[in-house]
Design a protein around this nucleic acid. Structure first.
Lengths: 188, 188
DNA sequence: GCTTTTGTACTGACTGGTCAGTTCGAGAGG
DNA sequence: CCTCTCGAACTGACCAGTCAGTACAAAAGC
């Protein structure tokens, strides 16, 4: 059992518990117990509860950003936008608890550094695709790309959580189709 | 100073502090202090910290739902959708801290009742308008109205918070225009 | 008119419990 | 032997909730 394994086990336990109860209400004792390690081990590995959470955010935001960047494939920019939306849905399908933690703690001034990273790395993927769409004439030239990126990201984030709670059985492609229809304004 | 006034003062202090720090991290003592009352007064009026928060959620969700319902005006259904989006933006412009609290605490199983109310009353306004749009042939007949309603609501909620943090000076109409363009897929 | 009682709103010191973080002796494993 | 982990006991700060008492206005009694 390497140190890296221990850290991952603690990450897993922490993200679940914090998603259920929030950061403040989650005790280090409970995290250690669910992870199957001693409380002292958590402090040995991370130093403090705050440092553990900061490391957890950085780790998770990194994975999310990679997933979004990798998903950004397609012929035309707007196809890539659709693909990134699907990528985000898939990511939160797999790492559901993280979606809740992001939503709950993301805008807290306390985690300023993590918020900055999220904006630059994860939202950045949306912003880039949208800029390409503007450049290709697929979106109006004066679109506020930053706001639009936040809008799409927040939309998918909210729907991901709602999905888990109210309709976990619905295939993810159906959800994706709904969002894409909405974004493209397909009237039929 | 009536009892109702005291309750409103406590509501105001609580929503601000909980938006800043989260529910668990906010102490009743701090709420009382900011409200300018004694700690005992809070318990006298609400019974417990949990009951205070439940009352606060119900109060705020009621106001939000009213604001959305009143905003739903316009000739065609999709015009009404635009109007509701603007109504939501305006509401959170005024009651900003509540937006953060909603986002952070809304999906916690602890506040099941409030979540149900939010879904039925606030999201219900979006669902209704979207159903009318489908009926009028302005949206495809097989649209998943519930998911779409959540998507639009979450989109506006996220953007409202991001707006406050990064671009408080931008006129709300500009933000509205961006969101509506996105929803209508106006290419230009 | 005047006291006395009653009800309502509020106060703040106090209690009992919780939790982050520490310390330490002992063991596992590479 | 050096790094990592364990378990368990401990400390000190912090906090939800309690409770005995204050303030005061509006009846009630005389």
């Amino acid at each position: 059992m390497s140190r890296a394994d221990t850290r991952l086990k603690v990450f897993g336990a922490a993200i679940e518990l914090i998603a259920e109860q929030g950061y403040s209400a989650t005790t280090v004792e409970a995290i250690a117990e669910r992870a199957g390690v001693a409380k002292g081990t958590v402090f040995y590995n991370f130093g403090s509860k705050e440092a553990l959470f900061a490391a957890l955010l950085e780790h998770s935001i990194g994975r999310l950003s990679e997933a979004l960047a990798e998903a950004a494939e397609g012929e035309r920019p707007l196809d890539r936008l659709d693909a990134v939306v699907l990528g985000q849905l898939r990511f939160f399908e797999q790492y559901g608890p993280f979606a809740r933690v992001l939503l709950a703690e993301m805008w807290r001034t306390a985690w300023q550094e993590a918020v900055t990273q999220l904006r630059e790395r994860a939202l950045g993927v949306y912003a880039r695709v949208l800029r390409e769409a503007v450049a290709a004439g697929e979106l109006r030239a004066d679109l506020d790309v930053e706001t639009a990126a936040t809008a799409v990201f927040g939309m998918v984030l909210t729907v991901s959580i709602e999905r888990r709670v109210t309709r976990p059985d619905q295939p993810i492609e159906r959800t994706h189709e709904t969002l894409v229809d909405l974004l493209r304004g397909r009237l039929r």
